[in-house]
Amino acid sequence: MTIFDIFTNQLLNGIVLGSFYALVALGYTMVFGVVKLLNFAHGELYMVGGFAGFLVLSFLAPFIGAGWFGVAVSMVFAMIAIGFLGVVIERVAYAPMLSAPRLSILITALAVSLVLQNGMLALTKGQYVPFGSALGFGGINLGKLFISYNQMILVSVAALLMLALEMFVSRTQYGRAMRAVAVDKDMSRLMGINVNAVIAVTFFLGSALAAAAGTMAGAFYGSLWYFMGFLIGLKAFTAAVIGGIGSIPGAMLGGLILGLLESFATQLDLRGMGIPFKVGSEWKDVFSFSVLILILVFKPTGLLGKSEQERM
């Protein structure tokens, strides 16, 4: 393999990984935007979303198969179910805490995360659960680069979902209302916007995107685990911070950057230059969280975030 082959291969891997990060980061950033809450339970919604997709698929597979069509249909059902779960969590756990000190609601989010995680631990006894999808192994060769159909479909679906979200937020009245609520809740009320309804819709959309990522991850990697949401939750948080927390394009960009960074960093091999240093894939988390720390130190507003300023 030449350097170029490695490069294109890792570029592809990075884009696939980045799509997952971006989908989950979007929910993080949207919720932070409207209620200024770091929803630490968000990674668990990805995990529960994966299991929801698995459940639907086990019911539907005899009728529609377990290929991409079956997975896509399961994904849609999982998105709706987890969307509502997100709304219920907001109503039950977060809404009563919104006027409490910030730390209280943060602790509540950790509690919700533990409940979901341990609930799934109890249900699955800590076992890996095979997703049961039957995706093909086909693909196309571009020179020495092999792109599987699965990778193509996954990235396209993720891109489509993000495009739909971006259109909703920037083009529709309700999307504008969502941005209004993020910057000024009282003014939004004065314009006749039902702020609680907007917050509910935000939780629904964010949670649904996490469920989409969870279902696709289950189908793509083949199995589910009760702890699978923990690390991706932290990574999505990192991606959201890189892009500028609260910014929707920022979350997409941050997710992609983080995916590429991890996939390239693990290829770093300095032995050819006489330095006995090679980074393996076990180092990728170190890279991600080092970037998180660097961003927090040098550019806390992220790449696309704006600092708050008033103007007379």
């Binding site: 009245q173 941005r179 209004a180 993020a182 003014m187 704006k306």
Partner: peptide, 12 residues
């Protein structure tokens, strides 16, 4: 509303 254009402010 910061981050929204003049037109978007009006439309809201």
């Amino acid at each position: 509303l910061r981050g929204l254009s003049v037109r978007e402010n009006l439309e809201l």
